[in-house]
Each structure stands twice: as structure tokens, then as C-alpha cells.
Simulated scan of single mutants.
Amino acid sequence: MWKNIEKSRINELNYEKIIGLFCEERMVEEAVEALQEMEGYGLRPSLEIYNSIIHAYAKNGKFNDASFFLNEMKEIGLEPETDTYDGLIEAYGKYKRYDDIGACLKTMELDGCSPDHFTYNLLIREFSRGGLLQKMEQVYRVMISKKMNLQPSSLVAMLEAYANFGILDKMEKVYRKVVNSSSLKEDTVRKLANVYIKNYMFSRLDDLGIDLSSRTGRNDLVWCLRLLSHACLLSRKGMDSVIQEMDEAKALWNVTIVNIILLAYLKMKDFTHLRSLLSQLPSRQVRPDLTTVGILFDAIEIGFDGAKTLETWRKMVLYRAVELNTDPLVLTAFGKGHFLRDCEEAYTSLEPKARDKKTRTYHQLIDLVIKHKAKES
């Protein structure tokens, strides 16, 4: 109907737009039909049309079809450009077909189509995501030798790759380049934090939190990192300093902040401050979670008189469904206490049907742990 209204609409540019839209929506068969239709009108397809179809097939994992249209394009005298191969490389990376990436680069060279800085940046990102560090570093060296600029997203990909493998020195080297040129997602920051924690470099968590706050503002993750840094070092002065900053910024406390402080007091066996903070939870409007309950029971096990707190919680907390709202970084740093490990052992001892029970209250979980320990003894 659209074509019949005005015949002048039947032209290469309009077909290029229509085929591009079909490919964006992954309607590749419709795109191919449109290609055949335009050829029926005697119109010559453009490089952009073939690129759209080749990339759409590749994104769908249909690499044989992509190759068919790549060859057809060459047969009608259209020379592939770097963008043609970049789309294929990206799709090969998506499907983890890294050998095909190498073959694609060789085909590029045979076609006289030299990789440009977009291609090299793409290769770094794909090899980084695949954990192919040697290939990633090889491409990086080529880029340096050719004096090509590394895109911020490529630097971040390298940073994540080193963090995933826990390669501290290279991670820090890349981080210094990234920190002034690109903002990091929280997931990336957490990966860095995990590496620092596993290497007992707790002071770096404070630096990481300060760097993050300069870009995102002082959010929950910033306070978590900074307080966790001093708590792991058992620095009361450092913890008090961060708490004072939070109060001055009128930052609301959450269960993660509370549990970090409680865990530090537990490690110090500072029962006076432990009791004081537990009593402040209602006024600070913080609801205890499983980690908080575990801290109380672990403290009782080493001599803390928690009878009063436990009695209060029986009425206000323990009838609720079990929740675990503490940031995972906290458990990575401090480890799981005796109570949490007992919970896991008790749970794994249950029959499969009993494990499928969707919700349990703290009362029920505590009873389960007591019964399991009684059986073990």
C-alpha cells in the first residue's frame, strides 16, 4: 500500500531504511524478502543493506546464512568494509566462537580490509569477556605499537578481566587509567573490592569508596566500602570517622551498615558497644536480618549475655520470615559465622521436599539448627 501510493518511494534509500528496521527487530527473513523484491525492481543493494542482513543473521547465531550473504555481496562487486567484519566479530564473541574470530581476521586481511581502531577495541572487549587474557594483551600491545587510542569501555573490560582472575597488579595498573576517564558500574566496583578483600588489602576499600563517591555521590555502596575497610582492620577510630561522616551527611543506616559494625565489635569482643548498637536498631529503623541474628548467636556462644536482646527479638523479630539483606561483600570480608554455617548444614540435611518450603521464620530456622546439632552430638 505504501509503495502504491507513490511509485517514487521505490528507491535504494527507502529499501535500505526498511531492511535496516527489519534487521533491528531481528525479522531477518522479512529483510531478505525485501532485498529480493528490490532486486526485482532492478535496484542495486548497497553495502549498508548487506551489512544489516549479515549482522542480523550473525546476532541470531546463523553464521552459515551470514557467510552466504557475505559471499553474495562480494560476487556482485561490493567490497566488505571493517564494519562488515566488526559485526561478525562481535557476534562470534557473543556465542564464544573465538576460533572464528581469528579466522575472520585472516579473511579481513585477505580481502585487503585492515582492522582499524574500532576493530582492535572490539577484539579487546570480546577477548576480555571470554577470559582470553593472552589474546587480549596481544591486541593491546598491537594498539600501543600503532599508537591507537583505547576506548574507555575497552579499558573497563580489561579491568574486569583482571579482577575476575584476581590478578591484582595488572588490575591496579588498569584501574589507575580507568579511574580518571570512565565511571564504573557497581558490579565492576564489587569485583575490584572482592580482589582487595581476598588479598587482605582492606585499606584499598576506603580508597575505592572515595573514588566512587566523587563520581556517584555518597551512596550505600560507598558507605559500605569505606566502613568495611576500617572494620576489617578493626580500627575503631576509622569506623567512628566514617560513622560521623554519615551522620553529618544525614545518611540513613541500613542492615549492611549495622552488621559491619556489629561484626567488628564481635571480632574485638567489645560486648559493651555490641549491646549498645543492638539496642539502637529500633530507633535507627533498621530491621535485623539473618546475618544480624547470626551475630547475636555467635556472640552468645563466646560469652555475651544476649538474653535481654533475644527476649525482645522473640516478640518483634523472630516471628518474621527469614531475610538476608546484608551486602555480600560483608560476608566475603568477615566470612560466615558459626550460626550461618550451622544453618547451611541443617538445611542441607533436610529431605528434598522439606527444602522446597519457600518461607521459614527465624523461630523455625533456630529450631531446625538446634535439632540438627542435637542429632550430630
Score class of each variant (00 low, 15 high):
E75S: 15
L132I: 08
M73G: 06
K96T: 06
E109Q: 09
D240M: 12
A58H: 13
I261T: 06
H230K: 13
A56T: 09
G131R: 10
I101M: 12
S181C: 10
A56V: 08
K237A: 09
K94N: 11
I54V: 08
M148W: 15
Y98G: 06
M171N: 04
I260G: 00
N121F: 13
E137I: 02
K17Y: 11
G112L: 02
N259L: 04
C113F: 04
L225Q: 08
L252R: 08
T309Y: 07
F118A: 11
Y57E: 04
H363Y: 09
C343W: 12
A299K: 09
Q151A: 15
V178L: 05
L122P: 03
A299W: 07
L340A: 03
F202Y: 15
C224F: 04
F22W: 07
H55S: 00
C113N: 02
K106Q: 12
L310R: 14
H273E: 15
C104G: 08
Q244D: 12
R141A: 09
C104F: 08
R125F: 05
E301I: 01
R204K: 15
S67A: 14
N194P: 00
S153C: 04
E81W: 03
I210F: 07
S114E: 14
I366N: 03
S213H: 12
D327H: 13
K185H: 08
E248N: 13
F202R: 05
L234M: 09
A249D: 14
L110Y: 14
K96W: 09
G40L: 10
D298T: 10
V28W: 07
R341A: 00
F127M: 13
N254Q: 06
E109I: 14
L277D: 03
D220L: 12
T326Y: 04
D298L: 02
L252T: 03
A56D: 04
F271R: 05
D86L: 03
R26Q: 13
